[in-house]
Design a protein around this nucleic acid. Structure first.
Lengths: 227, 227
DNA sequence: ACAAGAATGCCAAATATTTTACAATCATCC
DNA sequence: GGATGATTGTAAAATATTTGGCATTCTTGT
């Protein structure tokens, strides 16, 4: 019953799934690195092979098209990880990674991680679970992008961004960020937010969106587009 | 250097990654089931927990919105698998699954699979790799949907649908199918195909699209949108 | 060889989304 | 406490995409 689907499945809540003992086992083989605000952590196309786990701070994923400003972003929080592709799929980095605020990251080189995994089937199992869940999120996001109209899609993202525990929620960030993660323009997002606001489902403020009643928004979404 | 990205990362080439010995180990614990053309294999929302591996035939994934005909599809081939979500993420079925042609499927119940996996870290490792690669495909598809204009997006899908070995390729199916997997209308796809045809990159025919020079199409795509 | 159904190609009107632009509000740095 | 840059709200014009429709071509079954 773990709903908790997320932004776009890029990388969420990975090592929260591990037991404390497992966490410390993983962390102990990792190398701690610190990044300052806005510092680049990894670049799109790079061929390094690390699994990175965020201990503190945040990491922004983005990508710039040749035409300049076209950037798509997602933001990862402490406990999230990234770099699975570089380790398990032998692929180059798919995004640019930047630190947001002072950030501590545990980096585990590919070989070390593989060795650790081969010795602990438990952690391996968890990893499979996490990957499956990420894949599920990505699949659902893909579905949403393809079949949901503007407004429900925006609503869906807002719900995905909340952690789902509290009855009410808020999200801090600019509407431009929201637009980027949705793959839309700020104007379109603004339009969608206006409509949701008109229906009393959300409140907007400077760099902040409040959802007074998460359930109500969820129900509206279910009603307006069953998916 | 395994490019071979695919349709939308829903489920590809899973057990081709295993060694013959591993394959037979997995197959031996599976239950063989046969389906006739168009027969339903599993329904969206169902809560069964099987990993299914296609031995022969094909499986179409689809989904119908409340508003009737809204259907999004992908097609899986022999060697592909599906159902990871039900097994590893405890999630209900995300799509409707139908057999295309006479189809043989190996079904492995959740518990059996987990037990098998716990006994063979090798297979587990492969599974992680496969999941990571699927996730990569899904991520790239998501990127494409969000940032690529109509025509490059269509070109990208065509390339993804080819196996990438031969210098030339063809794809068999209707333009409506293509439109559904892209999340566009037939008219839009027709428009995109017209443009690609005009540039001599593809040839269209009844239920068939030919790519005389896969490389040329790839280069055109790289040139027109670097991603 | 013919009829019927399926698929393609294309057009025009209706919608959706982006672009461009500008005024108003908010936060922060001196 | 005021200036400045960032962010929001919104509108109008330009594009992109869908909807609905129709003629043509292709395939299949008889």
């Amino acid at each position: 019953m773990e709903e908790k689907s997320v932004a776009n499945g890029i990388g969420r809540a990975v090592f929260g799934a591990l037991t404390p003992a497992q966490q410390s086992a993983v962390f102990s083989v990792g190398r701690l690195r610190r990044y300052a605000d806005k510092q680049m952590i990894a670049q799109c196309g790079a061929t390094d092979h690390y699994l990175s786990i965020i201990e503190a701070g945040a990491v922004r994923l983005s990508r710039v098209g040749r035409d300049g400003q076209l950037a798509v972003t997602a933001t990862l929080q402490p406990g999230d990880s990234f770099g699975e592709f570089t380790v398990f799929a032998h692929a180059p980095r798919q995004f640019d990674f930047h630190a947001i605020g002072d950030t501590r990251i545990r980096e585990i080189p590919r070989e070390v991680l593989l060795k650790l995994l081969s010795q602990s089937p438990d952690v391996m199992g968890k990893l499979i679970e996490v990957l499956a869940r990420k894949l599920l999120s990505a699949t659902q996001a893909l579905e949403a992008v393809r079949s949901l109209p503007l407004i429900p899609r925006t609503a869906r993202l807002l719900l995905a961004l909340t952690d789902g525990q509290n009855p009410s929620a808020r999200w801090e960030g600019t509407q431009t960020e929201l637009a980027d993660t949705l793959g839309l323009t700020r104007v379109s997002v603004s339009h969608a937010l206006r409509e949701l606001r008109r229906q009393g489902l959300i409140r907007t403020a400077y760099r902040r969106i409040e959802i007074p009643d998460v359930n109500a928004l969820q129900e509206w979404l279910d009603r307006s587009s069953p998916l």
